[in-house]
């Protein structure tokens, strides 16, 4: 471990499209999946991450380095996360949430989930269906029944988009 040897240990991560990345162990172990591999002694050579592509992994590593450089200050970490995610499109966010889930990085997972939820906030059902390409497989009768069952949800929810 870095603290014991005095020199920072570097890990090599491999994406599913065979891109290699070096990253400081201290940053990489933000991922519980990677931490477990390190602790089990499986981190000697290259760590293959079969569920993450190179583009997403590069982004996740940027995040790992950025957030681990910030000392224990929740507010600063939060503002870093907000800034990090601010320019990401939905496509990237979806990749990131899958990667964060696979890598078991709860802080990134929570931040990306919250960000995606923000897109859905105060939007009508029709808007969300269109935005996310969700196919409505209810018959009109079924849909009416679901609406009836969840009647309380449609009271007082203001949507700021057309239906």
């Amino acid at each position: 471990m870095a603290a014991e040897t005095g020199t920072p240990t570097t890990l090599t991560l491999k994406s599913n499209d065979d891109e290699l990345f070096s990253v400081a162990e201290s940053a990489a172990i933000l991922s519980v999946t990677i931490r477990n591999m390190v602790e089990d002694g499986c981190a000697g050579g290259v760590i293959p991450l079969d569920n993450v592509d190179g583009k997403t992994l590069a982004s996740v590593i940027t995040y790992m380095n950025g957030i681990s450089a910030i000392p224990a200050d929740e507010e600063k970490k939060k503002s870093y996360r907000d800034k990090f995610l601010s320019d990401k499109d939905f496509e990237t966010l979806a990749d990131m949430v899958l990667a964060a889930n696979y890598l078991n990085m709860s802080c990134l997972m929570d931040a990306v989930s919250a960000k995606i939820a923000q897109v859905m906030e105060k939007k009508s059902v029709g808007w969300v269906r269109r935005k996310f390409g969700i196919e409505n497989d209810y018959t009109p009768e079924e849909e009416a029944a679901v609406k009836e069952e969840h009647k309380w949800t449609f009271e007082g929810v203001e949507t700021d988009d057309d239906n």
Binding site: A117, E121, R129, T153
Partner: peptide, 16 residues
């Protein structure tokens, strides 16, 4: 889970 309870339950209407 990050939506309000009402909004989360609203998603039940999206699809089955």
């Amino acid at each position: 889970s990050y939506l309000s309870l009402k909004e989360a339950a609203c998603t039940s209407v999206l699809s089955s």
